[in-house]
């Protein structure tokens, strides 16, 4: 895929930053390079990773999805509600969680395409609606008492955290899809120039519906994984998750104007953000300062990138 080559230099840049920060952290802390810390980072990164891959699809079409965090909470709650021990096969709650996310995604997509409402507004509405539904469905309390067969999904297989496997699987499928499927190419075309794509015979509505639905489905998956990890469906979970996800995608070189971006870029963006979060924890930086530092790094990274790509 040539879009990969085009961004190679850029990717190289982030990779160097990731390695430099990693080097710095392994010198200043004893714990960074420990196995337990790295698996912990992997676990933490996975949920943001799944969300970031999903929202990459939407951002590529020049849209945006602000409802990620709220939909994570809603999917977690619906999943947990059907996950009480001995009630259903483990596939049922998983399916319910995924379906919840996909339904939110389809709704976003329909409102954006058929309704002609700006993605920012549609998903802002979805953000509060989904949060409200999560509180209604759970009665405002965490849905606990989940069957171990589901919460085991947060565990390991052969020492590898299952959430990480989910993230890796999702990333691989998304990468293959965007670089080898017609629909993948159409996503770039629609984001690059919607009117030209329509004039070339592409159904812009279908492409966008697909992007929002995929994003919703993956958000549902993130909700299920989070519920499994925390062994509860938390109606207040996932607050501001969309911001970390979008930040990761943009750091990875995806243009908010659409049409430019790659899955590998997104993965690196996710890793960088995860590394920063972990590093600030390990260095016991107060969470107040963490917020400031993270914000500065995100804007700085994107600013550097744009400056570089302009020259």
């Amino acid at each position: 895929m040539p879009t990969l080559d085009r961004n190679l230099l850029h990717r190289f840049g982030i990779l160097i930053v990731i390695l430099l920060i990693g080097l710095g952290l392994s010198l200043t802390t004893d714990t960074f390079l420990s196995l337990s810390n790295l698996t912990n980072v992997a676990r933490q990164v996975s949920i943001n990773g799944i969300l970031a891959i999903g929202v990459t699809f939407v951002l590529l079409t020049a849209g945006v999805d602000l409802s990620l965090g709220a939909v994570v909470a809603l999917s977690g709650v619906t999943c947990a509600t059907f996950a009480h021990p001995g009630e259903h096969n483990v596939m049922i709650p998983i399916f319910i969680g995924l379906a919840t996310g996909a339904a939110c995604g389809i709704t976003n997509g329909v409102l954006v395409t058929k309704g002609g409402v700006a993605p920012f507004i549609v998903t802002l509405g979805m953000m509060t609606v989904a949060r409200g539904l999560a509180l209604i469905a759970s009665g405002g309390r965490p849905v606990a008492d989940m069957s171990p067969s589901l919460t085991n999904l947060a565990g390991d297989v052969l020492g590898i955290p299952i959430p990480l496997l989910c993230f890796a699987g999702v990333a691989l499928i998304a990468w293959i899809f965007l670089s080898n499927f017609r629909l993948g190419r159409y996503i770039y075309a629609v984001g690059g120039n919607e009117n030209a794509a329509r004039a070339a015979g592409i159904s812009v509505t279908k492409v966008k519906l697909f992007a929002y639905t995929t994003c919703g489905l993956l958000t549902g998956l993130a909700g299920v994984v989070l519920a499994a990890r925390t062994t509860t469906g938390q109606p207040n979970a996932g607050i501001a998750y969309e911001l970390d996800a979008i930040a990761a995608v943009v750091i990875g070189g995806t243009s908010l104007a659409g049409g430019i971006g790659t899955v590998t870029g997104t993965i690196l963006g996710v890793v960088l953000i995860g590394e920063i979060n972990n590093g600030l924890d390990l260095l016991s930086v107060s969470s107040y300062y963490q917020a400031v530092i993270k914000g500065v790094i995100i804007v700085g990274a994107v600013w550097l990138d744009r400056r570089q790509s302009r020259s």
Partner: peptide
């Protein structure tokens, strides 16, 4: 510009 090119894509694409 408006109805033809997808500027960020390659000539091939």
């Amino acid at each position: 510009k408006g109805l033809g090119l997808i500027p960020a894509l390659s000539v091939r694409e």
